[in-house]
Amino acid sequence: MKKSLWTFGTREVVFAAIGAALYGVLSYATNLLQIPGAGNVSLRPAVAIPMFFGVAFGPIVGFLSGAIGNILSDLLSGYGFWPWWDLGNGLMALVPGLIYLSIKDFRSWGDLLKAEGMVVLGVALGMGVASLSEIWVSGIDLATAISLNFVPAFITNVINGLILVPILMVAYSAIVARSGR
């Protein structure tokens, strides 16, 4: 069957739900385990999950995994709803999903590097949109939005994505080989 970038069928519904639930549970679990970060940078490695789901299942799955996953993570932790950050998390995973159709081999250096590049772009766009929304919502200036919101979120998310997305891609290649999808 020919793949399409913007299909939203049963498969996409299921994997978007799984991606979102994984993102929510793993964020909550790593919070609970109190994994030490460096200085005041907290570790939230689960952000790599929606990015990987974007690469593996397409941009819609990536977007929904990121957006709904962030809602779930905030719900589990009791932080309330922050819709513009949910949107940012969705965009962060949608961008890597744009290369979904061009991935031929999840183990090849070329495809891994492509995914890495899209992770950086995705985090820049997603966290950029969420941070700039704070200007509109909280009335902060651009300098504050960049220094206080964008830079910490961008650095931690990009590091998490760059390290964990390729690891997940290589692991997923075994499933692809087995299932023939």
């Binding site: 994997f15 799984i18 639930a21 994984l22 793993l26 790593t30 994994i35 030490p36 970060g37 460096a38 940078v41 570790l43 490695p45 689960a46 790599a48 999950i49 990987f52 593996a56 590091i159 998490n160 390290i163 964990l164 690891i167 997940l168 692991a171 997923y172 075994a174 499933i175």
Partner: peptide, 22 residues
């Protein structure tokens, strides 16, 4: 360092994610 700490989350993340995908 930070990179090592994140990389060492893989033994937890990979099995859970791949089982969920299957």
């Amino acid at each position: 360092n930070l990179f090592t700490r994140i990389r060492r989350m893989a033994p937890l993340f990979v099995p859970v994610t791949m089982n969920a995908i299957l």
